[in-house]
Structure formats: structure tokens, C-alpha cells
Design a protein around this nucleic acid. Structure first.
Length: 478
DNA sequence: TGAAATGTTGGGGCG
DNA sequence: ACGCCCCAACATTTC
């Protein structure tokens, strides 16, 4: 009799370290068959976007390498997840499938159907938490309902049992007697046909090893200065772990425990991990929120569907340097600094009155760390229609945000070369600069760099009036 | 995890 | 010495 085989179905847990599904498969004592299935159409309206596919390619390539180092390999297939799993079970006589949970509504549905179908065939299935510090259903208010405000949510989390210590990465994996066929990673077509990802950084860094490197750097230096530096887009003051956390290339428990040792210095950063958990909490309890406002009355808000303005925003041609710098950083690198995400998002929603869903879609396509939970929380927060929402009257001033968080304009100059010669005093508001300053910097407004697409003061009053009017019609809306 | 408008305070210049 | 004005600087309120 041949030895037992357990499938480990890799999804958003592309690591060997602290991987509970992998750990469980190993404990079974039989062979372990690592599998990845490419099934984007199963993610319904939120298929992985271009930037995410690019990163996924690198992440899978890294996973292949670390599995090979452990004497194993990754079986790659595409098609219906259930059909592929059943096929592999037939081919390998596997009797168990283990995976780590996802929280996107469509995938919860899919996964429970798969679980049911496999159970009916007598295959053991078990699922685990690899992605969050606290499971969404474990955190409840005193009255048993989900939290809708972050601070009490996080305070409650901190009273619960601390997340368990991370599991070690296995040094070696027992392999099946024969390997089923696998597609080549390249065949999934995740890499772009034209090389638009030149600015995305080193592909080597996009593996789990890159995550370890970043965590080490961050916990050695930046975490202490994090509270002061995290808002400066010109500085490398954030952890830059978002994409690794999204793909599960690093475990939040690993991050938690390695930073926890630093005591109080890491509290501000751990709180950000808390926001990530909170986003999953909300997505789990309010599954319609990727497309629909949590505060339902906002579905009737008079947004403007202005495609031309949307395009200017996407291309970084709004005429507001901080907004444009952020949008260009996003386009070129697949990433944007968090402070600038807030400013650019606020600009789309409040200055242009374009529906937050359009912004969410653009970020979804262009961010390498695009994550349904985080993206939804962020955009609803900006629009003021979500949990713990920014009040409607909070309208970021892109000029003063720039002057405050990029005072020397290092970030602006990096991403808007046509303004690089402008002095810091005027670069955040070039339309107010004296002619001789513009001439000296070689800037011709409306030609080399756009004039503001909308006047700030006008836009601010317009959005306040719109929200005000809306509130009158829908009492209790804000 | 704002910004602008409005209000208050206190030091200095000055008659 | 005193009152008055000006105006930062800071605080509070309002959107």
C-alpha cells in the first residue's frame, strides 16, 4: 500500500514559514503535495489586476524555489479549483486537502462548496488561519455584534489571547512517489506582454525572502522612527510589507511577534496591522461593501460620473503636484505611499465628486498590494460612507498636505520632473508662483505642467454643499 | 488618519 | 505708567 498523500492548496499564503495548512499536512506523516491553482474568474468582479498578477508571478516563482530547497516542488494548474483538486486527488490517491482561509465573500462561498464536495467524496479537509491576527468572528462587541469603529475593535483585540507564536518553516517535505503533471509558471501568463513593470523594483525582492529582508530592516531601524516618519512620502519610513502581507509571503503573526519584542516603540506600527485585521473583519461581516456603501443611504449620493476627469486623475495630470506625484508613483511602481493614498483618494471623491468605486477599481488594477479588504475600507473611509468613516467635511487640501508632509518637495521632484527646478516655496502651488520663478524653472503652466483641473476653494465648497444637501434629504446620513 | 473661520491671549510699539 | 492697537500664536468652533 502506498503512503498517504495530503494536498496543500496554496492561495494567499505563499510561504513555508508559519503556514498552518502546510504544518497540518506534515503532521499527517504522509507525502505532501503543494498545489497552486490559477482560477481568476472565481474571484467574480475582483479578478487580480495587472500589478497583482505581476507580483503573483514573482511570488510563485519564489515559492517554487523555496519548495525545491525543501526537496519538493509546486504543482501549478489552472481551471476550476474544485475540478483541479478532484483531478489531483484521483491522480495521487490523496485523502486530505488542507488550506488557509480567505475572507472575500465570493471565495468564502466557493471554498465552502469545495469543502462540501470533497467531504462527500470522503476526502478530509481542514482550513486554517494564515492571514489575520484575530479571526473576524472572534472579535465581538459586548452585545455580540461586529465592530464598526476601529479603536474599540483594536482595544478589544488587545484583551484577547495574543496571536500564537509562528510555526517554523519545515526544512524538508516528504514527496509523493510520482509527481502529477504541472504547468510551467510562465504558462499562466501572469507577466505582462509589454514590459510596463520596469519601475516595480527588483523581482528578487518580491519573494518571501524580500519580505524577511524588509522586516529585518524595518525592525532594526525604521520602527522606532515610525510615528514621525510614516507620513513623509519622500522617506522610507513605512514597513513596505503590504504586498507581502497580501500574498501571505510573510505572516502577520511573524511580524507581530518580531516587533512585539521591541515593546512600546512598535505599538504605532502594530496598530496599523490592526487596521488590516479590521478591514478583514468588516469585509467578512459586511460582504457587500466592495461595491456598496456600508451606510446604505450613500448609494443615493449625487456623484458625478465624469470620465474625462477620472482619466486626468489616473494619469497624474490634475495640476496638484502632490496628487499627481502619487498617481505617477502608483503607475510607475505599483505602489503608493499611504499618506498620498489618502490625499489622492480624497481628491477623487471630494474635489471631483467621482464615485469612490471608480477609485477603488483603479487602485485594484494598479497596486501590487491590492487587497479587497484594505481597498474597500480605505475608499469607504475616504468617501465617508463606511465604518469609522472620515466625516464628510474632511476635505484634504492637496497644497497644505504637500507643504506639511513633503516640505522640501523631494517626493514631488522625484515624480514630477517637469517641476523639479521649482523652488520648494512655490512647487506645491505653481499657479500662484510669480512669472519670473516659473520662467527660471522652465515651467509653462498649461503646457509643460497642467493648471489645476479644479480650483480648491471652489471644489471644497461644492463638496460641502453637496454633502449638506444630501444630509437634509437623508437625515442621519452623516 | 483636516481645514478654515472665528475667538482668545499676550507681548511689544507707541502716543 | 497707562491704554490702545496690532498681530502672531494658539485654541475653539464649524464645516
Amino acid at each position: 500500500m502506498s503512503k498517504k498523500t495530503a494536498l496543500v492548496w496554496f492561495r494567499l499564503d505563499l510561504r513555508l514559514d508559519d503556514n498552518p495548512a502546510l504544518h497540518a499536512a506534515l503532521k499527517g506523516g504522509g507525502a505532501v503535495l503543494p498545489v497552486f491553482i490559477w482560477a481568476p474568474e472565481e474571484e467574480a468582479g475582483w479578478k487580480p489586476g495587472g500589478a497583482v498578477r505581476y507580483w503573483l508571478h514573482q511570488a510563485l516563482s519564489g515559492l517554487e524555489a523555496s519548495l525545491e530547497k525543501a526537496g519538493s516542488r509546486l504543482i501549478i494548474r489552472s481551471g476550476s479549483s474544485l475540478e483541479v483538486l478532484q483531478q489531483l486527488i484521483r491522480e495521487t490517491q490523496a485523502d486530505a486537502v488542507f488550506w488557509n482561509r480567505r475572507y472575500e465573500p465570493e471565495l468564502i462561498r466557493r471554498d465552502s462548496a469545495i469543502k462540501q464536495a470533497l467531504k462527500e467524496k470522503g476526502v478530509q479537509t481542514e482550513t486554517f488561519n494564515s492571514a489575520v491576527l484575530f479571526e473576524p468572528w472572534e472579535v465581538k462587541t459586548g452585545s455580540g455584534t461586529p465592530f464598526k469603529v476601529f479603536t474599540p475593535f483594536w482595544n478589544k483585540c488587545l484583551t484577547l489571547d495574543a496571536p500564537p507564536e509562528p510555526l517554523p518553516a519545515p526544512a524538508a517535505l516528504p514527496v509523493p512517489e510520482t509527481w502529477p503533471k504541472s504547468q510551467k509558471l510562465r504558462q499562466l501568463g501572469l507577466e505582462p506582454a509589454i514590459d510596463w513593470a520596469k519601475g516595480f523594483g527588483s523581482t528578487e525582492d518580491m519573494t518571501a525572502r524580500g519580505a524577511e529582508k524588509f522586516l529585518k530592516e524595518f525592525s532594526a531601524e525604521a520602527v522606532a522612527a515610525y510615528p514621525e516618519q510614516r507620513d513623509l512620502p519622500a522617506v522610507r519610513g513605512t514597513s513596505r510589507l503590504s504586498a507581502y502581507l497580501h500574498f501571505g509571503q510573510i505572516s502577520p503573526r511573524r511580524v507581530w511577534h518580531s516587533l512585539r519584542k521591541q515593546g512600546r516603540t512598535s505599538a504605532a506600527y502594530l496598530r496599523q496591522l490592526g487596521w488590516r485585521d479590521f478591514a478583514h473583519h468588516l469585509l467578512y461581516h459586511f460582504p457587500k461593501t466592495p461595491d456598496h456603501p456600508l451606510r446604505e443611504e450613500y448609494a443615493a449620493f449625487p456623484w458625478k460620473n465624469d470620465r474625462a476627469s477620472l482619466k486626468l486623475w489616473q494619469r497624474g495630470l490634475t495640476g496638484y503636484p502632490l496628487v499627481d506625484a502619487g498617481m505617477r508613483e502608483l503607475w510607475k511602481t505599483g505602489w503608493m505611499h499611504n499618506r498620498v493614498r489618502m490625499v489622492t483618494a480624497s481628491f477623487l471623491v471630494k474635489h471631483l465628486l467621482i464615485p469612490w468605486q471608480r477609485g477603488a477599481e483603479w487602485f485594484w488594477d494598479t497596486l501590487v498590494d491590492a487587497d479587497l479588504a484594505n481597498n474597500t475600507l480605505g475608499w469607504q473611509w475616504t468617501a465617508g460612507c463606511g465604518a469609522d468613516a472620515a466625516p464628510y467635511f474632511r476635505v484634504f487640501n492637496p497644497v497644505s498636505q504637500g507643504e506639511k508632509f513633503d516640505p522640501d518637495a523631494v517626493y514631488i521632484r522625484r515624480w514630477i520632473p517637469e517641476l523639479a527646478a521649482m523652488p520648494a516655496k512655490w512647487i506645491h502651488r505653481p499657479w500662484e508662483a510669480p512669472d519670473e520663478i516659473l520662467d527660471a524653472a522652465g515651467v509653462r503652466l498649461g503646457r509643460t505642467y497642467p493648471k489645476p483641473m479644479v480650483d480648491h476653494e471652489f471644489a471644497r465648497r461644492r463638496t460641502l454643499a453637496a454633502y449638506d444637501e444630501f444630509k437634509k434629504q437623508k437625515p442621519g446620513a452623516a
